[in-house]
Nucleic acid binder design. Structure first.
Lengths: 169, 169
DNA sequence: CTAAACTTTCAGTAATTATTGAAAGTTTGT
DNA sequence: ACAAACTTTCAATAATTACTGAAAGTTTAG
């Protein structure tokens, strides 16, 4: 398949946008990030609005969320009154931020609840035993998965990823 | 904190249910799965509906989806006319199914598109070069992450998980 | 074959989530 | 201090997604 620049760009933005759900963010947020990710220079709110055909308010709110996630930053360009925005351009670094935030916002709280639930008093009934057993298993799995993800993604270089891959291939 | 069985059960089901989005399924689906996961016996549609206070139609549709995902199965109980349902009880096995399905349904198609986009003809312009470079980086990252996830989760025992954890600690 | 017991489908509706746009707020230059 | 240039907020609205329930479909027993 051969695509023109514009077609490829649109495809990338819409695909990455719809994938947003996979890493827990909404469409507009993901699309703004995509746009910045392939831009050769920082973009202003005006440019983002126009490019993605979304409102000023929407752009403002989603940019803020992206900054909260730590993957977009304000860039002040000397002589310009407007604010400009860039995203983390290094995929490894991007993955690190996303994994860290998801862990903090979603996974850790669930692990906490699993721990609480699996720690209820065993009253000897079969159903209580089952609840404890199953939530404990889930707790251990979630904790292991979370720890692995963070460790893997936190290496400065990706040497460990490469060596791990070899190990398990 | 000390909870009663019923409180702990409700908390588990609602927490796990709201976490559904994290692994790409909806609330009712996740709640049905949770209920089965801590049940000591197969449950009928009637029992699921009553327990979760959801309609017959909703229950039917979500059970089907869970079966499509391969994590819930029909259990025919001799002498009973009704159908009964159980979920995979082993967390390792559960994680395997979920990872496999997510990879197949969501990650693989995105990798394919990233590949297409990063393979457009380089017309020499800066913006085209940037699009190619960044989507290629994303493609490689996605492919590596997908491969790792599948490898890790596909081990019959979790010996490898344990040894990997040691390695990267 | 018929009826009872059960499951599935799907059009309508409800609930949730995202988006707009205009008013309010802020910052900067003169 | 004022006004221009810009950003943020948020109530109203739109779009999306999930849920209901009754009708249609299926299976089983007699």
């Amino acid at each position: 398949m051969e695509m023109e620049y514009q077609e490829a760009k649109d495809k990338f933005i819409s695909t990455w946008g719809s994938l947003g759900t996979l890493w827990g963010i909404n469409k507009a947020m993901a699309q703004i990030q995509s746009l910045l990710f392939i831009s050769t220079k920082p973009l202003s709110m005006e440019e983002i609005m126009k490019e993605l055909k979304i409102s000023r308010g929407n752009t403002s709110m989603n940019l803020r969320q992206l900054m909260d996630w730590g993957i977009v930053t304000k860039e002040l360009i000397p002589g310009e009154r407007k604010e400009f925005f860039t995203t983390e351009k290094d995929v490894q670094e991007l993955a690190r931020h996303i994994a860290k935030e998801r862990s903090r916002r979603e996974i850790k709280p669930v692990i906490k609840i699993l721990k609480d639930v699996s720690s209820i008093k065993d009253d000897g009934t079969e159903k209580t035993k089952e609840l404890i057993k199953q939530t404990k298993a889930l707790h251990d799995l979630a904790e292991t998965a979370d720890a692995m993800m963070n460790k893997i993604v936190n290496q400065e270089q990706n040497w460990i990823t490469k060596s791990l891959l070899k190990l398990i291939k």
